[in-house]
Amino acid sequence: MSLGKVLIALSVVFLGLYWLMDSLNIISPGIMSLFGECLPYLVILLGALLILSPIIKRKKPGFFWGLFFLIYGGLLLADKHGMLVFHWQDIWKLWPYIIIYFGLDMLFGKNLFVSLSGNFDHGKKKKKDKSHVEFIWNGDEAKEDSGQKDSYMFVNESSYKHENWMVKPMHERVRIADYNFDFTKAFIPEETIPITLSGWVGDIKITVPDDLAYRVDLRAKVGDAKIGKEKHSGILRNVSYQTGNYDEAVRKIDFAFDFQVIDLNIDQV
């Protein structure tokens, strides 16, 4: 096991033990105060070691976790000196760091592929059936061909709003997603069509006709979801929704969403 993994594992165990003892009130105030004084420096030291230790061994630095702990420790230190308010339990507020880090990695990393594609109907007037933009990034070592297994779709912006676009089963996993579906303009076959989307951050807008049967299974660490007249906000662990005509309908859609952060809006018109 690498030094970075050992340090992260030990840090997680240490913090877990501390939080457990703190919640059970078995830590004396003196130890609590001492730990609070030392915590910012320990976290900053951990971040620095995760970056510098692999460099000394001529290996790839652990920039992701290294920078994360440097930022976390820096904010704790700023709170200690009264520059801002940031407590150790506010670590969850750093989730935008994921987006910022991979955005910078896309800019300065290697092997970034950009793909623009669209399907067209043949005839006198060509209409785009699907506009699709993909940013595919491979942050590891380059492969000999572009069909490498380690590549993945990083950012996906897709729009399905054109007349008579064909609804087909879909299963896509992306890091950052922006989807816009308009099923009032779609051709929907008489069958159950699964649409599964997952990733880190999802901004999904869906418009469905009032008579379309569908069900939704949603999981997210945090987000907002408006499904018909139902509204959900905060931690969305297991949100399920099903239209009243779902069981007897022949034509229906099964939506499944699994994101860390999501903004979902499903409107019936």
Rank of each mutant, 00 (worst) to 15 (best):
S2I: 03
F14L: 14
F14N: 01
L15W: 02
L17H: 01
L17V: 13
Y18H: 05
D22N: 09
I26S: 12
I26N: 01
I27N: 06
P29E: 10
C38L: 10
C38I: 06
C38A: 10
C38M: 12
L39Y: 00
P40I: 09
P40D: 09
I44T: 01
L45E: 03
L50P: 07
L52S: 10
P54Y: 04
R58K: 03
K59T: 04
K60M: 12
F63P: 15
F63H: 14
W65E: 15
L67D: 04
F68T: 00
Y72S: 07
L75M: 11
K80H: 10
K80N: 11
H81D: 08
M83K: 05
W88G: 05
W88I: 09
D90I: 02
W92Y: 10
W92V: 07
W95I: 07
W95Y: 12
Y97K: 12
I99Y: 03
Y101D: 03
F102M: 02
L104S: 08
D105N: 15
D105I: 05
F108G: 08
K110I: 02
L112W: 02
L112E: 04
S115C: 13
H122E: 11
G123Y: 04
K126E: 12
D129M: 13
K130G: 07
K130H: 06
S131T: 15
F135H: 02
W137R: 02
G139A: 14
G139E: 13
E141T: 14
A142D: 09
E144A: 10
E144Y: 07
D145V: 11
G147Q: 10
Y152H: 08
Y152S: 08
F154M: 12
F154R: 09
V155C: 01
V155F: 04
N156G: 01
S158H: 04
S159M: 07
K161S: 13
H162C: 00
N164V: 02
W165G: 12
W165Y: 03
V167K: 08
V167Y: 01
K168S: 11
D178W: 00
Y179C: 05
N180H: 14
F181Y: 13
F183A: 05
F183Y: 06
P189C: 02
E191R: 15
E191C: 07
T192Q: 14
I195H: 07
L197D: 11
L197W: 06
S198K: 12
W200L: 03
W200V: 07
K205C: 02
I206C: 07
T207G: 00
D210V: 08
D210Y: 11
L212W: 12
Y214I: 01
R215N: 03
R215F: 00
R215G: 04
D217V: 10
K221T: 11
I227N: 14
I227W: 04
K229W: 02
G234L: 09
G234Y: 02
R237N: 13
R237P: 01
V239E: 09
V239L: 05
S240M: 12
N245P: 12
A249F: 13
R251D: 14
R251I: 11
K252F: 00
I253M: 13
F255K: 07
D258F: 00
Q260R: 09
V261A: 05
I262R: 06
D263L: 07
D267A: 10
V269K: 10
